[in-house]
Design a protein around this nucleic acid. Structure first.
Lengths: 195, 195
DNA sequence: CGTTTGCTTGAATTCTGTCAAAGCAGGTGG
DNA sequence: CCACCTGCTTTGACAGAATTCAAGCAAACG
Protein backbone atom coordinates (compact mmCIF):
# COMPACT_ATOMS: atom_id res chain seq x y z
CA UNK A 1 0.00 0.00 0.00
CA UNK A 2 3.00 2.30 0.29
CA UNK A 3 4.21 1.32 -3.14
CA UNK A 4 2.88 4.31 -5.03
CA UNK A 5 4.41 6.67 -2.49
CA UNK A 6 7.75 4.90 -2.65
CA UNK A 7 7.70 4.98 -6.40
CA UNK A 8 6.81 8.64 -6.35
CA UNK A 9 9.68 9.40 -3.99
CA UNK A 10 12.08 7.45 -6.11
CA UNK A 11 11.11 9.52 -9.07
CA UNK A 12 11.19 12.88 -7.34
CA UNK A 13 14.57 12.34 -5.74
CA UNK A 14 16.59 11.18 -8.67
CA UNK A 15 18.40 8.64 -6.47
CA UNK A 16 17.05 5.45 -4.88
CA UNK A 17 16.08 5.42 -1.23
CA UNK A 18 18.08 3.38 1.25
CA UNK A 19 16.52 0.42 3.05
CA UNK A 20 16.32 2.49 6.20
CA UNK A 21 14.56 5.29 4.44
CA UNK A 22 12.09 2.92 2.87
CA UNK A 23 11.44 1.40 6.26
CA UNK A 24 10.91 4.82 7.74
CA UNK A 25 8.33 5.69 5.10
CA UNK A 26 6.48 2.45 5.68
CA UNK A 27 6.35 2.96 9.41
CA UNK A 28 5.53 6.61 9.32
CA UNK A 29 2.76 6.99 6.80
CA UNK A 30 -0.52 5.40 7.71
CA UNK A 31 -3.49 4.77 5.49
CA UNK A 32 -6.61 6.77 6.05
CA UNK A 33 -9.85 6.32 4.17
CA UNK A 34 -12.03 9.29 3.48
CA UNK A 35 -15.54 8.74 2.26
CA UNK A 36 -16.94 10.77 -0.55
CA UNK A 37 -18.21 14.12 0.74
CA UNK A 38 -16.20 13.84 3.95
CA UNK A 39 -13.75 16.56 4.90
CA UNK A 40 -10.00 16.23 5.03
CA UNK A 41 -9.72 19.80 6.25
CA UNK A 42 -12.26 22.30 7.46
CA UNK A 43 -12.23 26.05 7.08
CA UNK A 44 -10.93 27.71 10.23
CA UNK A 45 -9.02 24.64 11.37
CA UNK A 46 -5.27 24.24 11.37
CA UNK A 47 -4.13 21.66 8.84
CA UNK A 48 -2.42 19.06 11.01
CA UNK A 49 -2.04 16.39 8.37
CA UNK A 50 -0.19 16.00 5.14
CA UNK A 51 -1.50 13.32 2.84
CA UNK A 52 -0.36 11.47 -0.24
CA UNK A 53 -3.24 10.28 -2.35
CA UNK A 54 -3.15 6.58 -3.11
CA UNK A 55 -6.60 6.43 -4.60
CA UNK A 56 -9.40 8.89 -5.12
CA UNK A 57 -9.81 12.61 -5.66
CA UNK A 58 -10.36 15.70 -3.54
CA UNK A 59 -11.29 19.33 -4.01
CA UNK A 60 -10.04 22.37 -2.12
CA UNK A 61 -12.38 25.32 -2.00
CA UNK A 62 -13.55 28.36 -0.12
CA UNK A 63 -17.14 29.35 0.47
CA UNK A 64 -18.29 32.95 0.05
CA UNK A 65 -21.01 34.87 1.93
CA UNK A 66 -23.67 33.64 -0.45
CA UNK A 67 -22.62 30.04 0.11
CA UNK A 68 -21.04 29.59 -3.28
CA UNK A 69 -18.07 27.24 -3.52
CA UNK A 70 -14.95 28.42 -5.24
CA UNK A 71 -12.62 25.63 -6.23
CA UNK A 72 -8.98 26.50 -5.72
CA UNK A 73 -7.42 23.12 -6.34
CA UNK A 74 -8.22 19.62 -7.42
CA UNK A 75 -6.21 16.63 -6.26
CA UNK A 76 -5.87 13.14 -7.65
CA UNK A 77 -3.66 10.07 -7.23
CA UNK A 78 0.01 10.63 -6.54
CA UNK A 79 -0.50 14.19 -5.40
CA UNK A 80 0.03 15.62 -1.98
CA UNK A 81 -3.02 17.07 -0.35
CA UNK A 82 -3.27 19.61 2.43
CA UNK A 83 -2.94 23.30 3.07
CA UNK A 84 0.82 23.76 3.14
CA UNK A 85 0.70 27.23 4.63
CA UNK A 86 -1.59 26.18 7.43
CA UNK A 87 0.46 23.05 8.03
CA UNK A 88 3.79 24.82 8.18
CA UNK A 89 2.77 27.95 10.05
CA UNK A 90 0.07 26.43 12.26
CA UNK A 91 -2.40 29.02 11.07
CA UNK A 92 -6.10 28.42 10.51
CA UNK A 93 -6.86 27.51 6.92
CA UNK A 94 -9.40 29.51 4.94
CA UNK A 95 -10.18 26.45 2.86
CA UNK A 96 -12.15 23.25 2.92
CA UNK A 97 -10.66 20.10 1.48
CA UNK A 98 -13.24 17.46 0.72
CA UNK A 99 -13.13 13.99 -0.76
CA UNK A 100 -14.78 14.03 -4.12
CA UNK A 101 -14.73 10.26 -4.37
CA UNK A 102 -14.03 7.57 -1.82
CA UNK A 103 -10.40 8.25 -1.18
CA UNK A 104 -7.35 6.67 0.41
CA UNK A 105 -4.49 8.83 1.59
CA UNK A 106 -1.25 8.01 3.33
CA UNK A 107 -1.07 10.55 6.08
CA UNK A 108 1.45 11.91 8.49
CA UNK A 109 0.69 14.25 11.34
CA UNK A 110 2.61 17.41 11.98
CA UNK A 111 4.02 16.04 15.23
CA UNK A 112 5.29 12.86 13.66
CA UNK A 113 6.62 14.85 10.76
CA UNK A 114 8.69 17.05 13.02
CA UNK A 115 9.84 14.16 15.14
CA UNK A 116 10.79 11.69 12.47
CA UNK A 117 10.99 13.24 9.04
CA UNK A 118 11.88 16.89 9.26
CA UNK A 119 15.58 16.23 9.63
CA UNK A 120 15.87 13.55 7.01
CA UNK A 121 17.94 14.73 4.10
CA UNK A 122 15.70 13.23 1.47
CA UNK A 123 12.63 14.83 2.99
CA UNK A 124 14.29 18.22 3.02
CA UNK A 125 15.12 17.78 -0.61
CA UNK A 126 11.61 16.72 -1.41
CA UNK A 127 10.10 19.56 0.52
CA UNK A 128 12.27 22.05 -1.32
CA UNK A 129 11.29 20.57 -4.63
CA UNK A 130 7.61 20.63 -3.81
CA UNK A 131 7.63 24.28 -2.80
CA UNK A 132 9.59 25.24 -5.85
CA UNK A 133 7.39 23.34 -8.26
CA UNK A 134 4.27 24.62 -6.61
CA UNK A 135 5.50 28.18 -6.97
CA UNK A 136 6.24 27.63 -10.66
CA UNK A 137 2.80 26.22 -11.30
CA UNK A 138 1.09 28.96 -9.40
CA UNK A 139 2.96 31.67 -11.24
CA UNK A 140 1.70 30.21 -14.48
CA UNK A 141 -1.81 30.16 -13.14
CA UNK A 142 -1.57 33.80 -12.13
CA UNK A 143 -0.30 34.67 -15.55
CA UNK A 144 -3.00 32.65 -17.31
CA UNK A 145 -5.78 34.14 -15.29
CA UNK A 146 -4.55 37.59 -16.22
CA UNK A 147 -3.87 37.12 -19.90
CA UNK A 148 -6.16 34.39 -21.17
CA UNK A 149 -9.84 34.32 -22.03
CA UNK A 150 -12.15 31.66 -20.63
CA UNK A 151 -11.75 29.70 -23.82
CA UNK A 152 -7.97 29.83 -23.77
CA UNK A 153 -7.87 28.78 -20.15
CA UNK A 154 -9.90 25.72 -20.98
CA UNK A 155 -7.67 24.69 -23.84
CA UNK A 156 -4.67 25.19 -21.60
CA UNK A 157 -6.21 22.87 -19.05
CA UNK A 158 -6.83 20.30 -21.74
CA UNK A 159 -3.11 20.26 -22.33
CA UNK A 160 -1.92 20.47 -18.75
CA UNK A 161 -4.35 18.27 -16.87
CA UNK A 162 -6.58 16.43 -19.33
CA UNK A 163 -7.49 14.01 -16.52
CA UNK A 164 -9.43 16.73 -14.77
CA UNK A 165 -11.94 17.00 -17.57
CA UNK A 166 -12.73 13.31 -17.46
CA UNK A 167 -12.63 12.95 -13.77
CA UNK A 168 -14.52 15.93 -12.46
CA UNK A 169 -17.94 17.22 -13.49
CA UNK A 170 -17.99 20.36 -15.53
CA UNK A 171 -19.28 22.67 -12.86
CA UNK A 172 -16.27 21.77 -10.71
CA UNK A 173 -13.80 22.26 -13.51
CA UNK A 174 -15.50 25.54 -14.38
CA UNK A 175 -15.04 26.83 -10.87
CA UNK A 176 -11.43 25.66 -10.86
CA UNK A 177 -10.89 27.61 -14.06
CA UNK A 178 -12.57 30.68 -12.63
CA UNK A 179 -15.74 30.72 -14.71
CA UNK A 180 -19.34 29.60 -14.34
CA UNK A 181 -20.61 26.22 -15.45
CA UNK A 182 -22.78 27.94 -18.06
CA UNK A 183 -19.79 29.66 -19.62
CA UNK A 184 -17.84 26.44 -19.70
CA UNK A 185 -20.73 24.62 -21.29
CA UNK A 186 -21.11 27.27 -23.98
CA UNK A 187 -17.40 27.31 -24.69
CA UNK A 188 -17.29 23.57 -25.17
CA UNK A 189 -20.16 23.64 -27.61
CA UNK A 190 -18.68 26.43 -29.67
CA UNK A 191 -15.43 24.55 -29.55
CA UNK A 192 -17.04 21.51 -31.14
CA UNK A 193 -18.66 23.62 -33.84
CA UNK A 194 -15.43 25.33 -34.89
CA UNK A 195 -13.91 22.19 -36.34
CA UNK B 1 26.73 48.50 0.17
CA UNK B 2 26.00 44.93 1.25
CA UNK B 3 24.42 46.13 4.44
CA UNK B 4 20.81 45.87 3.36
CA UNK B 5 21.37 42.34 2.10
CA UNK B 6 23.09 41.30 5.30
CA UNK B 7 20.33 42.79 7.36
CA UNK B 8 17.76 41.04 5.22
CA UNK B 9 19.52 37.70 5.67
CA UNK B 10 19.77 38.21 9.38
CA UNK B 11 16.07 38.73 9.53
CA UNK B 12 15.10 35.85 7.26
CA UNK B 13 17.31 33.30 9.03
CA UNK B 14 16.39 33.90 12.60
CA UNK B 15 20.00 33.41 13.67
CA UNK B 16 22.99 35.68 13.07
CA UNK B 17 25.44 34.87 10.31
CA UNK B 18 28.99 33.85 11.16
CA UNK B 19 31.92 36.05 10.19
CA UNK B 20 32.80 33.62 7.43
CA UNK B 21 29.32 33.70 6.05
CA UNK B 22 29.26 37.47 6.10
CA UNK B 23 32.58 37.50 4.30
CA UNK B 24 31.27 35.10 1.73
CA UNK B 25 28.29 37.31 1.02
CA UNK B 26 30.48 40.38 0.63
CA UNK B 27 32.81 38.63 -1.76
CA UNK B 28 30.16 36.90 -3.76
CA UNK B 29 27.53 39.50 -4.49
CA UNK B 30 28.60 42.32 -6.73
CA UNK B 31 26.80 45.56 -7.36
CA UNK B 32 25.27 46.16 -10.73
CA UNK B 33 23.56 49.34 -11.82
CA UNK B 34 20.66 49.18 -14.20
CA UNK B 35 19.44 52.35 -15.84
CA UNK B 36 15.79 53.12 -16.06
CA UNK B 37 14.24 51.31 -19.03
CA UNK B 38 17.15 48.88 -19.28
CA UNK B 39 16.51 45.16 -19.13
CA UNK B 40 17.58 42.82 -16.37
CA UNK B 41 16.15 39.87 -18.29
CA UNK B 42 14.86 39.50 -21.79
CA UNK B 43 12.11 37.26 -23.05
CA UNK B 44 13.54 34.08 -24.54
CA UNK B 45 16.76 34.30 -22.58
CA UNK B 46 17.78 32.07 -19.71
CA UNK B 47 17.90 33.97 -16.44
CA UNK B 48 21.52 33.61 -15.40
CA UNK B 49 21.46 36.11 -12.57
CA UNK B 50 19.76 36.41 -9.25
CA UNK B 51 19.64 39.89 -7.83
CA UNK B 52 18.87 41.55 -4.54
CA UNK B 53 17.56 45.07 -4.94
CA UNK B 54 19.48 47.66 -2.98
CA UNK B 55 17.82 50.62 -4.56
CA UNK B 56 15.24 51.14 -7.26
CA UNK B 57 12.33 49.27 -8.75
CA UNK B 58 11.69 46.83 -11.57
CA UNK B 59 8.77 45.33 -13.41
CA UNK B 60 8.35 41.83 -14.78
CA UNK B 61 6.01 41.46 -17.73
CA UNK B 62 5.12 39.55 -20.85
CA UNK B 63 4.18 41.07 -24.17
CA UNK B 64 1.26 39.72 -26.18
CA UNK B 65 0.79 39.57 -29.96
CA UNK B 66 -0.64 43.08 -30.05
CA UNK B 67 2.35 44.43 -28.19
CA UNK B 68 0.54 44.99 -24.93
CA UNK B 69 2.50 44.62 -21.72
CA UNK B 70 1.10 42.48 -18.98
CA UNK B 71 2.71 43.11 -15.62
CA UNK B 72 3.23 39.95 -13.63
CA UNK B 73 5.33 41.29 -10.80
CA UNK B 74 6.70 44.47 -9.37
CA UNK B 75 9.92 44.57 -7.40
CA UNK B 76 11.30 47.12 -4.98
CA UNK B 77 14.08 47.44 -2.42
CA UNK B 78 14.93 44.36 -0.36
CA UNK B 79 13.30 41.98 -2.80
CA UNK B 80 14.92 39.37 -4.92
CA UNK B 81 14.53 39.82 -8.62
CA UNK B 82 14.81 37.27 -11.39
CA UNK B 83 12.88 34.45 -12.97
CA UNK B 84 13.37 31.63 -10.50
CA UNK B 85 12.13 28.91 -12.79
CA UNK B 86 14.40 29.97 -15.62
CA UNK B 87 17.31 30.36 -13.23
CA UNK B 88 16.90 26.97 -11.61
CA UNK B 89 15.98 24.92 -14.66
CA UNK B 90 18.04 26.79 -17.25
CA UNK B 91 14.98 27.26 -19.38
CA UNK B 92 14.23 30.32 -21.49
CA UNK B 93 12.11 32.83 -19.66
CA UNK B 94 8.85 34.04 -21.15
CA UNK B 95 9.22 37.34 -19.33
CA UNK B 96 10.99 40.64 -19.51
CA UNK B 97 12.34 42.23 -16.36
CA UNK B 98 13.02 45.90 -16.75
CA UNK B 99 14.27 48.62 -14.46
CA UNK B 100 11.51 51.04 -13.77
CA UNK B 101 13.82 53.50 -12.07
CA UNK B 102 17.59 53.73 -11.97
CA UNK B 103 18.31 50.63 -9.96
CA UNK B 104 21.11 48.97 -8.03
CA UNK B 105 21.12 45.24 -7.49
CA UNK B 106 23.55 42.90 -5.82
CA UNK B 107 23.89 40.07 -8.26
CA UNK B 108 25.23 36.59 -8.36
CA UNK B 109 25.58 34.47 -11.45
CA UNK B 110 24.32 30.94 -11.68
CA UNK B 111 27.86 29.56 -11.95
CA UNK B 112 29.08 31.36 -8.89
CA UNK B 113 25.93 30.38 -7.07
CA UNK B 114 26.52 26.70 -7.73
CA UNK B 115 30.20 26.94 -6.95
CA UNK B 116 30.12 28.93 -3.78
CA UNK B 117 26.64 29.20 -2.30
CA UNK B 118 24.56 26.21 -3.23
CA UNK B 119 25.99 24.02 -0.52
CA UNK B 120 25.94 26.58 2.26
CA UNK B 121 23.47 25.62 4.92
CA UNK B 122 22.12 29.11 5.38
CA UNK B 123 21.55 29.52 1.67
CA UNK B 124 19.66 26.26 1.49
CA UNK B 125 17.49 27.43 4.32
CA UNK B 126 16.91 30.77 2.67
CA UNK B 127 16.13 29.19 -0.64
CA UNK B 128 13.57 26.90 0.97
CA UNK B 129 11.98 29.82 2.73
CA UNK B 130 11.78 31.90 -0.41
CA UNK B 131 10.09 29.17 -2.42
CA UNK B 132 7.65 28.47 0.34
CA UNK B 133 6.74 32.10 0.86
CA UNK B 134 6.45 32.70 -2.83
CA UNK B 135 4.07 29.78 -3.15
CA UNK B 136 1.94 31.11 -0.30
CA UNK B 137 1.71 34.54 -1.86
CA UNK B 138 0.93 33.18 -5.28
CA UNK B 139 -1.82 30.95 -3.97
CA UNK B 140 -3.43 34.02 -2.46
CA UNK B 141 -3.13 35.84 -5.74
CA UNK B 142 -4.77 32.97 -7.59
CA UNK B 143 -7.57 32.96 -5.08
CA UNK B 144 -8.04 36.73 -5.22
CA UNK B 145 -8.11 36.81 -8.97
CA UNK B 146 -10.84 34.19 -8.93
CA UNK B 147 -13.03 35.51 -6.17
CA UNK B 148 -12.58 39.26 -6.01
CA UNK B 149 -13.89 42.11 -8.15
CA UNK B 150 -11.56 44.75 -9.55
CA UNK B 151 -12.50 47.04 -6.69
CA UNK B 152 -11.81 44.41 -4.05
CA UNK B 153 -8.48 43.55 -5.59
CA UNK B 154 -7.46 47.17 -5.38
CA UNK B 155 -8.37 47.50 -1.75
CA UNK B 156 -6.51 44.30 -1.03
CA UNK B 157 -3.43 45.75 -2.66
CA UNK B 158 -3.80 48.89 -0.58
CA UNK B 159 -3.44 46.70 2.48
CA UNK B 160 -0.76 44.33 1.23
CA UNK B 161 1.57 46.57 -0.74
CA UNK B 162 0.58 50.18 -0.22
CA UNK B 163 4.02 51.20 -1.51
CA UNK B 164 3.09 50.05 -4.98
CA UNK B 165 0.41 52.68 -5.32
CA UNK B 166 2.76 55.49 -4.48
CA UNK B 167 5.70 54.19 -6.34
CA UNK B 168 4.30 53.01 -9.65
CA UNK B 169 2.03 54.87 -12.06
CA UNK B 170 -1.55 53.75 -12.19
CA UNK B 171 -1.43 52.02 -15.53
CA UNK B 172 1.32 49.76 -14.22
CA UNK B 173 -0.54 48.94 -11.03
CA UNK B 174 -3.67 48.34 -13.08
CA UNK B 175 -1.92 45.80 -15.23
CA UNK B 176 -0.42 44.15 -12.16
CA UNK B 177 -3.92 43.85 -10.74
CA UNK B 178 -5.25 42.44 -13.97
CA UNK B 179 -7.40 45.33 -15.11
CA UNK B 180 -7.10 48.27 -17.50
CA UNK B 181 -5.90 51.69 -16.46
CA UNK B 182 -9.36 53.10 -17.22
CA UNK B 183 -11.02 50.66 -14.85
CA UNK B 184 -8.54 51.46 -12.11
CA UNK B 185 -9.07 55.16 -12.62
CA UNK B 186 -12.83 54.82 -12.42
CA UNK B 187 -12.65 52.65 -9.33
CA UNK B 188 -10.47 55.13 -7.51
CA UNK B 189 -12.84 57.96 -8.27
CA UNK B 190 -15.90 56.07 -7.12
CA UNK B 191 -13.91 55.08 -4.09
CA UNK B 192 -13.36 58.70 -3.18
CA UNK B 193 -17.04 59.54 -3.68
CA UNK B 194 -18.30 56.78 -1.41
CA UNK B 195 -16.98 58.38 1.77
C1' DC C 1 8.75 75.33 -25.53
C1' DG C 2 7.09 71.13 -27.81
C1' DT C 3 6.74 66.34 -26.72
C1' DT C 4 5.94 62.62 -24.03
C1' DT C 5 3.69 60.37 -20.22
C1' DG C 6 0.06 59.63 -17.26
C1' DC C 7 -4.70 60.31 -15.79
C1' DT C 8 -9.59 61.02 -16.61
C1' DT C 9 -14.11 60.67 -18.90
C1' DG C 10 -17.64 59.23 -22.14
C1' DA C 11 -19.85 56.06 -25.30
C1' DA C 12 -20.14 51.76 -27.42
C1' DT C 13 -19.06 46.94 -27.20
C1' DT C 14 -17.84 42.42 -25.56
C1' DC C 15 -17.50 38.97 -22.46
C1' DT C 16 -19.08 36.65 -18.71
C1' DG C 17 -22.36 36.14 -14.96
C1' DT C 18 -27.11 35.61 -13.25
C1' DC C 19 -31.50 33.69 -13.29
C1' DA C 20 -34.76 30.45 -14.75
C1' DA C 21 -36.30 26.51 -17.13
C1' DA C 22 -35.81 22.24 -19.22
C1' DG C 23 -33.52 18.04 -20.59
C1' DC C 24 -30.76 14.06 -19.59
C1' DA C 25 -28.70 10.44 -17.50
C1' DG C 26 -27.85 7.12 -13.50
C1' DG C 27 -29.27 5.22 -9.36
C1' DT C 28 -32.76 3.92 -5.91
C1' DG C 29 -36.68 2.11 -4.02
C1' DG C 30 -41.18 0.45 -4.57
C1' DC D 1 -39.37 -2.98 -14.48
C1' DC D 2 -41.00 1.45 -13.94
C1' DA D 3 -41.40 5.95 -11.56
C1' DC D 4 -38.98 9.15 -9.31
C1' DC D 5 -35.25 11.42 -7.48
C1' DT D 6 -30.96 13.83 -7.72
C1' DG D 7 -26.96 15.63 -9.80
C1' DC D 8 -25.22 17.46 -13.99
C1' DT D 9 -25.52 19.86 -18.37
C1' DT D 10 -27.62 22.78 -21.71
C1' DT D 11 -30.11 26.81 -23.43
C1' DG D 12 -32.19 31.36 -23.58
C1' DA D 13 -32.97 36.02 -22.10
C1' DC D 14 -31.13 39.55 -19.63
C1' DA D 15 -27.95 42.24 -16.64
C1' DG D 16 -23.65 43.83 -15.27
C1' DA D 17 -18.76 44.32 -15.09
C1' DA D 18 -14.90 45.48 -17.47
C1' DT D 19 -12.65 46.48 -22.01
C1' DT D 20 -12.00 49.13 -26.05
C1' DC D 21 -11.74 53.23 -28.52
C1' DA D 22 -11.38 58.05 -28.58
C1' DA D 23 -10.62 62.49 -26.91
C1' DG D 24 -8.99 65.92 -23.74
C1' DC D 25 -6.12 67.66 -20.20
C1' DA D 26 -2.36 68.26 -16.88
C1' DA D 27 2.15 67.50 -15.42
C1' DA D 28 6.81 66.16 -16.24
C1' DC D 29 10.72 66.00 -19.26
C1' DG D 30 14.36 67.04 -22.31
Amino acid sequence: MHESLLQYLHQMLDHPLSEDEIGLIRETFVLKKIRKHKLFLEEGAVCKLAGFIVKGALKQYSVDETGKENILNLYIENWWVGDRESFINNTPSPYFIEAFEDTEVLIISKEVYIERLQNQGFIRKLSQKLSTNQAFKLLKRVHSSKTLSAEERLSELEKTYPEFLQRFPQHIVASYLGMTKETLSRIRNNFAKNR
